[in-house]
Amino acid sequence: MISIMRSVRRMRAVFFARNLEYLRDRASFGWNLVFPVLIVFALAVVFSGPPRPLFTVTAVASDSLPELLEFPGIEIISADRSKALDRLSRQQTDLVVEVVEDSVRYWVNGNSASGAILELLLKYTESRSLERGETDGEAIRYVDWVVPGILGMNMMYSALWGVGYVVVRYRQAGYLRRLRATPLTKFEFLSAQVLSRLLVTLTASTIVFVGTNLILDYKMVGSLGLLFIIALVGGLAMITLGLAIACRTESKEFADGLLNAITFPMLLLSDVWFSLDGSPYWVQMIAQVLPLTHVLEAARAVMLDDAGVTDIAIHLAILVGFCTVGMGLSIKLFKW
């Protein structure tokens, strides 16, 4: 019991020291808050104009697609039926078509004018029998879709650099060696770093989330509590990944390279800025091994579709797996 109390006391001391260091580094602290806000506002301005005059049709894997889809100005995306209908209900696509033997099934969103026009065109141009389906759902603006991406990206940078880079800097400067000469254990040190950065990440994300929502009023239909849990588990997954990278690295330059090698694929493949629904299968498979993908899929499901805990359980389970592996590797391999 006494040993646990000692351990907690030492962890708490390192935790507060790290928080102090971060809070007094006003440039980093400010940047972590200002940067994502700037991006959200910039994108809100850029995409605030009228919708582009372009029809988007999602085709469920079929061979002989309707003639209508050969018309210019129509973008075709392939997806499985479930994903296609999800997109339709968010009005990210105007029409979903699926050819079954000699008939064409199609779905439109009852709230979509573009869908109604495409339906009319399809009826005039298609000789095969038509089978109609309908979904409903309000259109989401780009800003609604991109906000989780920006919050997730900010969390990723804050977690990976705030822990990974800082631990390597401590090691290179000899500070870890100094701590090693005290009774502080690896576990205590690493736990304090994780908790401190988690607090920073969650606080910054909450401030940015609330602040930008007050002004932009983006879509948030799900549970705030569940969104917080996603941020908590997602933040932990990224932080422990950063720790695993830093556990033996001695050079800041090398750490920089490693961190970039991890953040870049996430930035490109985890649906931060644009959906990868229409991308090749192998790209989507790579995206599934990146923690940010699961953070964003879960966050968007909650924010845009009011998903419950069972709907996003798989994402949470994968993120918990990342945390366990990351922390386990860090404790096992950590060198002062």
């Binding site: 790290r18 260091e21 007094r24 580094d25 400067a173 000899g174 500070y175 060696r177 100094r178 000469a181």
Partner: peptide, 9 residues
């Protein structure tokens, strides 16, 4: 130690 950095700030 001969060369020890402390935490910034």
């Amino acid at each position: 130690f001969q060369a020890t950095a402390l935490q910034d700030f």
